[in-house]
Amino acid sequence: MTTTNKLKYAKLVPIMLCFFAMGFVDLVGIASNYVKADLNLTDSEANIFPSLVFFWFLIFSVPTGILMNKIGRKKTVMLSLVVTFVSLLIPVFGDNYGVMLCSFSLLGIGNALMQTSLNPLLSNIISGDKLASSLTFGQFVKAIASFLAPYIAMWGATQAMPTFGLGWRVLFPVYMVIAVIAVLWLGATPIEEEKPDKASGFVSCLKLLGSPFILLCFLGIMCHVGIDVGTNTTAPKILMERLGMTLDEAGFATSLYFIFRTLGCFSGAIILQKVSARSFFVVSVICMLLAMAGLFVSDAEAVIYTAIALIGFGNSNIFSIIFSQALLAVPEKKNEISGLMIMGLFGGTVFPLFMGFASDAMGQDGAVAVMTVGVIYLLFYTLKIKK
């Protein structure tokens, strides 16, 4: 291994730890189910939490792209980690409705800052046709944090003494410590950034949506994260509704989803170096279509678990492929494009809201129907992917 490669990998490690911290946002799925049980909320009331988290992507993503032009990508990532730290500190002091709303709001703001700045920061180290596989590996690391969250919460809920009375909320201080390590490590790592994009404003960034392909990418990101947050939140509810499981038992469904998302990201990082993005994208979408069909036609436990696993695997590489396609389409405006694509994570607000209303009206089949709309759009998007 050459000295240049050693330096490159040394810089990748703290960036990948930041990707792990990026996964903290996915704790909102299992956390919202515990808050629902603690406060006796309806589905539509509980789904406000994941919707609130991703609402801030609509507000902060494009301004973050502009901020990066002024202070740089690395400093923006560090700012995001500080906000994330504060969001994880708040629930240590209680779990009433107002406290959790405040915590999830800050978690969403921090994650909006992080997702907008971390992906293009990675492009300072990895570029060209290796970018998609590197972004996928970052999503693999992110998914590790995502699937660990339900296990940590379940451990906290069933072990009174070691959690200092926090119960399932022990999840927050555990991840808070990792956020501190991430910000200190990244701050000590020198990263040479590209020359900032030309000064731009909010309106000029939004004008990029006038490009048909960029608009398609934006909508694709919305569908991806809608399916992601939707499955994260709804999978335990499906098992509880159809099989009568308790929340602690059904919480495994969320972990199963993220286990297969993790496996999908890991395999995708390798496969995308050898197979075209379009071919792999098609296979991924077909996996999700089969899963939605399974959730509609069967109440069997094995079928439900298989469907959740297929959604996890199928949805694992959607983001990195769409994001890299958008960055490569307009390489001279990476910061602005990143802001726009991350604004698409607002789909995590739109989908859970509609899923909550649909499930209150017709059970969890209604939530599955909403997610299926997103899968159908991604099938259409496959026709537009550049080989």
Rank of each mutant, 00 (worst) to 15 (best):
K207R: 12
L289P: 01
K207P: 04
F266T: 10
G230D: 02
I286C: 01
A188P: 03
M176V: 02
N232L: 03
L216P: 00
K198Q: 12
S284I: 04
L263Y: 07
I271E: 11
M240I: 13
G264T: 05
A302Q: 10
V229S: 06
L247F: 11
D299M: 13
L184F: 14
D197A: 12
A182I: 03
G264W: 09
K237G: 03
C223K: 02
S267R: 06
L209N: 04
W185T: 06
K237F: 03
M222H: 04
F172K: 07
A291R: 05
V285P: 03
L256R: 08
C223Y: 07
T262F: 11
F281D: 08
C265Y: 02
K198I: 10
S284F: 01
V170D: 06
I270A: 13
L215P: 10
V203G: 07
K195I: 14
H224S: 15
I238H: 12
I271Y: 04
F266M: 14
F218W: 04
A300V: 09
I191M: 07
F258K: 07
K274H: 12
L272W: 00
L290Y: 00
L219F: 06
A235S: 15
A250D: 15
R169L: 09
L208N: 03
F202A: 05
L239C: 09
L295H: 04
K237V: 08
P236R: 12
V283W: 06
V285G: 01
A300F: 09
L216Q: 02
G226D: 02
K237C: 09
S298R: 10
A302S: 13
L171E: 02
F296P: 10
F296L: 07
V229H: 08
E193Y: 05
P190C: 11
G251T: 15
V180D: 02
E301N: 12
A253K: 08
C217K: 01
K195Q: 13
A269Y: 08
I238S: 02
V283H: 02
W185V: 08
K237R: 11
W185F: 12
K207W: 04
V282P: 02
W185L: 12
F258Y: 15
F258D: 12
V283Y: 03
V229C: 09
V203R: 14
E241Q: 14
F202Q: 03
S276I: 14
V282S: 05
